[in-house]
Design a protein around this nucleic acid. Structure first.
Lengths: 90, 90
DNA sequence: TATACATTTAGATATATTTCTAAATGTATA
DNA sequence: TATACATTTAGAAATATATCTAAATGTATA
């Protein structure tokens, strides 16, 4: 889990949509998958890429596994973008 | 050129290094390529991906082609990240 | 404990990406 | 105008990614 994995994770449209969904609160893998027309296995793969990138965390509650947005990584990416933009050229 | 292409472009380490180089000012394709151990053709490919993502622009000056960082796209990405992070949870 | 439900993992296939070498293009200059 | 230099484009090979189906895992409950 690092910068590389975080950006790779964000570079896919489906995964960005998952992140947008999680903005409104934690969701189970099943509920997330229900928003897409691909198989649950495929969505599960995307969730694991997001997890590798540190963009989400998961926790089990009984039969269900809940996914939650992790914003600390997002701040790291923003810091890089701000640095890239350059303080002098705003 | 859109959000998807911009993030795809940023998701590669070599391309992020190119962006970091261009932070310090415009550079020719040759000077950029000199910073890497891959062929000029490969670096040229990366530059074209960055261009597709709107992250750089190029201009010819005689024999040379100069590349320049384009920061407006970066702001668009930052806006998404800020939105993702959520105003309420800072 | 057998069954059902929620989810992930394994293995396969198709598509995309990275990289290379060789050839092509555009510009300057002897 | 022939040649050299800077760079890109074309085409091929290797690797990575997205997706599927089928099987495995983990948990709850009849």
């Amino acid at each position: 889990m690092g910068f590389q994995e975080s950006l790779k994770a964000m570079s896919d449209k489906t995964r960005r949509e998952i992140l947008n969904l999680l903005k409104n609160g934690d969701m189970t893998a099943g509920d997330i998958a229900a928003h897409f027309s691909m198989t649950q296995a495929t969505v599960s793969h995307h969730l694991s890429v997001l997890k590798d990138g540190g963009l989400v965390t998961d926790r089990r509650e009984g039969k269900y596994i809940f996914y939650e947005l992790n914003t600390s990584v997002i701040e790291e990416i923003m810091a890089w973008l701000i640095e890239l933009k350059g303080v002098d050229k705003q």
